[in-house]
Design a protein around this nucleic acid. Structure first.
Lengths: 206, 206
DNA sequence: TGAAACTTGTGGTGAATTGCACAAAAACGA
DNA sequence: TCGTTTTTGTGCAATTCACCACAAGTTTCA
């Protein structure tokens, strides 16, 4: 259960397990096995058992895993047994889409703040939120105690905005800008770049 | 240069190198070193040299790498020394955003076809394209010889749409639906799920 | 009841990946 | 010209990671 000892590669798989379990639960299932779960997520059964064993003994021999219980434990481990408020910065096409994204429901997140620097956009409404002036980003994010941000600004200003988010207390950034952010080791970054995903596929094409 | 022998993990880093090199080129730079590139992408210099050496000797001792040449070679290796036509299926918020995404410019891709099954959306224009009827997906995709698709439909129909894309000749799918697709080994899938990215960060939060 | 069928958690093993260190080559400067 | 600096490509070592196999616990069913 010691956080220091769990490799990143294992942590990165836990959300995948959780997502599959929630789909099973939604389908009315109450029990599963490492075998079945492995087929759903494309990971070997042995791998799943070993990953989960890092955090405790959640299964029962002969029976497998009780889905609601495993969901509860994984949610606790991943700290999504609560709702995290999220700020979206940059209200272009991507920011617009993620702000309205309904895929966060029951997964631990909700967008509560949207920012943009463009005067033409400030004050407009998107998905029930008023777009706030990016000038007040540090102040607003700090006041709302937001720890997670989605960065949807152009690459040219991404590092600057990231610095200000961190100054405001943000500890995790989902980065849609096509560059690597330089952040302190206390801050986590996840990169999302569709073009990189596509280039990882075209390599294998003729 | 043998494709079979290059591990996936190395291939997955090449687009990251390419992206950083293109940024350097845009900034007017013509030369770089594994050291400098490593700092830009957050990967050790030795790792970068070893990765590149899988495909040839692109650098020169004492000098480093000539950026335009390395961009050219990496583009060839990743098969983005051409433009791939891309189909977007599902014109919800995400599909809308990726169809209009301008981050593909100069990275080997352009959206040419948009599909949706909703009669209210069919025929409407998005980013210069008319939304086509998903009923004709197989026929249209095959006719246009499209090999890459972005899947932005709800999870409930994602597998079915993926099957039809593959039937139509698609060999790579960028999947925004929150589930693992079952595909033949000849087809590549890249998953994009913002919630999973965020849960990979909250694990490390208190 | 008892045997057969399942399934977990884990020790051991082999493979894959990363990091280190250095020879060799090129550039630079005095 | 010649020593110093820079940098690549790579053999080797160390680490990390994934997989196999099995004892032990549980359920099922005759």
């Amino acid at each position: 259960m010691n956080k220091q000892n769990v490799p990143d590669v294992i942590v990165s798989r836990l959300p995948v397990y959780l997502r599959a379990l929630q789909r099973l639960a939604d389908a009315g299932e109450t029990a599963t096995s490492s075998q079945e779960l492995g087929e759903k997520v494309g990971i070997s059964a042995a791998q799943i058992r070993k990953d989960l064993s890092q955090f405790g003994e959640f299964g029962k021999q002969g029976t497998g895993y009780h889905i609601p219980f495993l969901i509860e434990r994984l949610s606790q481990i991943l700290h999504v047994d609560r709702i995290w408020d999220v700020a979206v910065v940059g209200m272009g096409d991507i920011g617009h889409a993620v702000a309205r994204y309904n895929g966060f429901a029951n997964r631990g997140f909700r967008v509560t703040h949207c920012f943009d620097a463009d005067p033409a956009k400030i004050g407009k409404e998107i998905g029930g939120f008023i777009i706030l002036d990016a000038k007040n980003l540090v102040e607003e994010v700090r006041k709302a105690e937001i720890k997670i941000a989605m960065l949807c600004v152009p690459a040219t200003v991404a590092q600057d905005v990231a610095d200000r988010l961190i100054e405001a207390g943000v500890r995790g950034i989902l980065n849609y800008a096509p560059l690597k952010l330089i952040v302190p080791s206390t801050v986590r970054v996840q990169h999302i770049d569709p073009a990189i995903g596509m280039q990882r596929m075209t390599y294998y094409f003729d």
